[in-house]
């Protein structure tokens, strides 16, 4: 369960979004839409706990969120297996073979990650989500550099995750083949700046 109420977030000290509210129940997915720079990444980072919210509340079960950013955090000199083993150990989960299987990485398991193609790396990055064992996935443009087949593969993985009672919050422009996913357009939540002279404490800086 992920519940976001009246969330406002800022980038570089400037308010970007306000009054964003949504809720995800087990098995649900929500896709964030909006033009570049509208605050999708900022919102996701706020939900993931990387930056504080200006206002509002994010409630989720403790230790339930797994975050995947633009960058995959892959170490080139480690093999695919070593990369996944590391994250499995960090998240205290057992076994990476299911993740390798689902993201179609089994054949590449012992290859050094620096020798993977961009799409393969991305698949490895997404396989990391599977080894976290966390129910709420927060995904920032998960399909960048994936080919059509891999997008379909990933769509299937997300669907399987939802089928097991998982949740997904993602920013993406590509149709993942998830018709059940709800869509939230952030254009309508753009933060309005306070009018000058209204007497806010630090208003001179906003």
């Amino acid at each position: 369960m992920l519940n976001v109420q009246g969330l406002a977030c800022a980038r570089g000290g400037l308010p970007l979004l306000e009054q964003v509210s949504f809720a995800l129940a087990p098995g649900q997915a929500l896709v964030l839409r909006g033009p570049n720079g509208c605050g999708k990444t900022t919102l996701l980072r706020t939900v993931a706990g990387l930056q504080p919210a200006l206002a509002g509340e994010i409630s989720a079960a403790p230790d339930s969120i797994a975050y995947a950013a633009h960058a995959d955090g892959i170490k080139g000199t480690l093999s695919v297996r070593e990369n996944l083993d590391f994250w499995a150990a960090i998240y205290g989960t057992q076994g990476i073979s299911a993740a390798l299987e689902q993201m179609n990485l089994r054949a590449l398991a012992d290859r050094a990650a620096q020798n993977l193609s961009a799409g393969q790396k991305r698949r490895l990055g997404l396989a990391r989500l599977l080894v976290t064992g966390r129910p709420v996935w927060v995904l920032d443009e998960p399909t960048v550099s994936l080919d059509v087949a891999s997008v379909a593969l990933f769509g299937a993985v997300v669907r399987a995750h939802l089928g097991q009672g998982g949740m997904a919050l993602m920013a993406t422009h590509i149709d993942l083949g998830l018709p059940e996913a709800e869509i939230l357009d952030l254009t309508g939540y753009k933060a309005r700046l306070p009018e000058p002279g209204t007497g806010g404490f630090d208003e001179a800086f906003l």
């Binding site: 000290g13 400037l14 700046l193 001179a204 800086f205 906003l206």
Partner: peptide, 13 residues
């Protein structure tokens, strides 16, 4: 200076 920076950023938004 800070106010100016904020105003420029405002303008851009």
């Amino acid at each position: 200076a800070r106010r100016m920076k904020a105003l420029v950023a405002r303008e851009r938004m």
